[in-house]
Each structure stands twice: as structure tokens, then as C-alpha cells.
Write a protein that binds this DNA or RNA. Sequence first.
DNA 1: GTTCCGATTGTCT
DNA 2: GACAATCGGAACA
Length: 204
Amino acid sequence: MSWRQLESMAPGEVLPPEFFARSALQVARELLGDYLCLREHPHGPVHRWVIHETEAYTGPDDKACHAAKGLTPRTQVMFGAPGHWYIYLCYGVHWMANIVCERQDHPAAVLLRGAGHADGPGKLTKGLGIGKQHHGKLAVPANGLWIETGEDVPDKAVDVTPRIGIAYAEEWVEKPFRFIWREATHDLKPAKWRPTKKKRARNR
DNA sequence: GTTCCGATTGTCT
DNA sequence: GACAATCGGAACA
């Protein structure tokens, strides 16, 4: 039974911080079908994109999780309260949108990889206009970026795979921490795993 | 169809 | 100074 059913939330309700105060794996799975919502101006239109792909970064022991290297200025929001946005620049090019999970002092987060017609985390943030201005903010409508309940997605419609782009994470590379809502993505190209250029050079 | 590669900058060593 | 939770386009098959 999902948290949503326990709390009997109707579709279209804002997910409160408590929703995220659980394991990143559980949150990542349940976010499928929910709406990523953005409003640029207080009186501007609300953009709602259905979330169809997520990844869980589970804590300080997870070598793929940025917080595995300890508390730094960049990662400190992951060590804080759940329900806040952790947003960072990847490859000097793309902003990644993550929402902090678990509890204070247990760094964990869920990366939003696909929503609406965007089939990658960089396209998602670019398409919606998410950037460093949202970093560290609580995910509530007053801050312009939040998540609302959508439909429940059944397990049979969900693919679970290893995470993308984390070839350095040793025994955590193969963990099935990526969740894809298949029906929502069948006409999008799936993200392919590929080692980074430098890793390829090293392996030659 | 697949594979390769550069872009571009914050972060950590 | 190395490298990164990516992407789009070019080159090749």
C-alpha cells in the first residue's frame, strides 16, 4: 500500500515534506505518475509535467550518491530536512533536479530523470526552466517548484533498472534503483548507459 | 542502425 | 588539475 493510499490523498494535492521523509527508493517508485509543477511568477501559469522516470540515491553508504564523500557546501542540503530541492550542474552543462528524502542528517535524494515529453534529466530542467535558483528551496507552491499527486502507476507498468552514468560507483553500479513508467515513455527513446569518455580511455 | 566526441563549469583533491 | 547522476550532432556501418 502506498503512502498516498494510507493518507487517502486525492489527485492534484501538493505532496507535503512528510512524503519525502522516507527511503529514497520508496519515494522514487511512488513519484511515478505524480506531477512536477512549476510557476515562474506568483501570478503566472502553472506548468505540470507527469513524472515518468526517477532514480534513488539512498544515503552516505551509496557510492553513487554525492553525499558519500561527506558533507560539503554543495551537498549540505541533502543532509538537511526532506522535501527540499538539491540542484547541481552536471558536466558543466546540465542542471539536475533532485528532491531530498529520508531524515535530517541522513543524506538521500531522488533524481527526476523524465517528465512530460523530456526523456532525460538535463532536458527536464531545461524544458521546465529549473535551475540553481531553486537549489535549497522547500518544494512548495510558494517557492514556485513543487510536486502534486497524480495517478497511481501499477508495478506491472514499471521497469526497474540500474542507474545511469555512475560507472565509478563500484558495487553500487548494478543496484536496481532506477524506475521507469513504461507506458508513459514507450515513444521516447530510453536513456542509454554509456561509460564516460575518460573511463573508456582508462579501460583501453 | 550504432558509436564517438566535444561542450563547459562547479567542485573537490 | 581531474572529473562529472548529460546531450546532440557527426561519423561510420
